[in-house]
Design a binder for these strands. Structure first.
Lengths: 166, 166
DNA sequence: CGTGATAAATTAGCCCACATAACCATTAGG
DNA sequence: CCTAATGGTTATGTGGGCTAATTTATCACG
């Protein structure tokens, strides 16, 4: 892809993606599935197999605190569980509950119901173009590129002022 | 498009679009262009021609208060201006300042720079699929569907009975 | 020509997603 | 042991989105 093509495509993405995002979010909101837009991908990932928090954060391209908070919210909704099933007691394994699987089903159907009206009039050619484009997007953005920073705090070890004896 | 196809596509969109959104937002944030993801489309729309707040809200598919706040933020950044140039003194016309046009240029270039690395390895076929898919998305989500928002408040003149029950 | 409905925009109050910085708890290794 | 590294959580801030309520201006009409 040439530079000029990359630029045009970048601008297209900047223009279109937020629009799609808002539309989908609004539809889910209207369907009473408030907290879905960001949690849906998470649930589908976890449906494949349980993961640790760090894995999830890397897969979704968000920071660890963000993922921790998202998981907390989903735990409160009863969609996932935090369990410590490895030998290392630091790591938590997140897995989906039956309620979580049901939620994926439900949100998927809600989204379908609302998007179908917009998508239905597409002819076969357009549908193929859309799905082809989506698959390319998945390949390009598939797993959180570009945030190599995460784990490299200097932290000179002198931070410990008041130790806390239990 | 069949029902089943619509459902699959809807799920794809739910899975991919937030990913793309986050990635792009993170890149712009890292580039020091914090407030861009949602404002970029706005600036490009306004670059074509000035608009009123209500028009903008409808075009972008957001509520009027949201648009008002976004515009306020952009006014503070010096990217757009609010002027009252119509006969109707209720309506404000929003137009882009030279600084706003420069910002579009700059953000476009920043996004290009960061997306180019991801997009460049695509072959011609993938690029065409991507752009084809984007154009379909634009057609489908092009202008805020779904929010007919039939504001049918049960009108009752000046009733102000219980505004804030704690 | 008032008066009440409607329309355009703003303000106030809330929620969610994301980020950093700082912290606690555990493990690894000299 | 003691120190560094690793996995998660808490604290705090920012921004975009919403609804409800308010303000200001225009319009329809008896």
């Amino acid at each position: 892809m040439t530079r000029a093509q990359a630029r045009d495509t970048a601008r297209e993405i900047l223009k279109i993606v937020p629009l799609v995002m808002r539309t989908v979010a609004a539809e889910l909101r209207a369907a009473g599935e408030l907290p879905a837009p960001a949690h849906f991908g998470l649930l589908t990932v976890l449906s494949v197999q349980p993961r640790t928090l760090t894995e999830l954060a890397a897969l979704q391209g968000v920071s660890l605190p963000t993922m921790s908070n998202s998981i907390s919210a989903m735990v409160e909704r009863g969609w996932v569980r935090r369990t410590a099933r490895t030998g290392d007691r630091r790591v938590l394994t997140i897995d989906v509950t039956p309620a979580g699987r049901a939620a994926v089903e439900r949100v998927g159907r809600a989204a379908e119901g609302h998007l179908a009206d917009a998508l239905a009039p597409l002819d076969a050619s357009s549908r193929q173009r859309l799905q082809g484009g989506l698959s390319v997007l998945l390949r390009v953005f598939g797993q959180a590129p570009g945030r190599p920073s995460a784990r490299s705090r200097p932290r000179s070890g002198r931070t410990r002022a008041a130790p806390k004896p239990p």
